[in-house]
Nucleic acid binder design. Sequence first.
DNA 1: AATCTAGACAACCGCGACGTT
DNA 2: GAACGTCGCGGTTGTCTAGAT
Length: 264
Amino acid sequence: MGRAPCCDKANVKRGPWSPEEDATLRNYVQTHGIGGNWIALPRKAGLRRCGKSCRLRWLNYLRPDIKHGGFTEEEDKVICAIYNQMGSRWSVIASQLPGRTDNDVKNYWNTKLKKKLAKFHSNGNAANNPNPFSSAPPPTAAPMPVTEAYRHGFPPLLTQGYTGTSNNMGVSEFGASSNNGHNVFISDQGGLSTDHATGISYVSYLPGTRGGEDDGVLMDFGMGNLPYDIISGFWFQEKDSTEVTPGSASLDEFPHLNIKPQGL
DNA sequence: AATCTAGACAACCGCGACGTT
DNA sequence: GAACGTCGCGGTTGTCTAGAT
């Protein structure tokens, strides 16, 4: 037995929403709430729309707290940071950007950010080219508490004793082994790859692989001129603009990093 | 002025997860 | 435990618009 359709597609309107439909939906939700059932909502509200369409319209456009307009560079950084850790988890990324929706973030990534990063990397030596992100400080608003970070699937904060390696893209991988908790991971295979089509480096975070759930990720956004890095989803301020040395094997060899998340 | 093209973003679709019956 | 209904997510497509030709 197949899945029942969510609505009678022959009798619902599709395509762009008119201002009248927007007003009807907005008025209904603000007066009655969603009522826990999007499927029944359009009938109650007097809309000839599929419930899923109503839900999408409300969540992505009509909600009062939606932020319209261009993304800031701080938002760019957050998107890039989480994308590099978790990939296309748009809802997770959007949850860290107040007023933004997963659809917004997804569209923005696909149409702008991906190209912005590709252009930056295709210029060759990153250290000699303008960074795609300005040197403006990273978001200072509320780095996630550790427990919240866990809830979102982030690895734990790095602490003393962790070791790591880095590659010449300035991306390092850290982790703790099962025996003494402080082993080095090799970063040039498996856990780290560069998409040559986009020029974007990806660091995989796959629980159960190459060290398990204690893996952490450091992204050196410094590129020679931006004094901030990301470790395990948190922004860190560098003590100076020294580039991470390729092949470094210990966190002790990253004296320019403050191993403490900003704001904590 | 007409047509083409690319960018931006709104909307749809299918699927998995989850709760209820 | 199976069937069903709904929600939420991510991928994809559609539509609109501005700029180029």
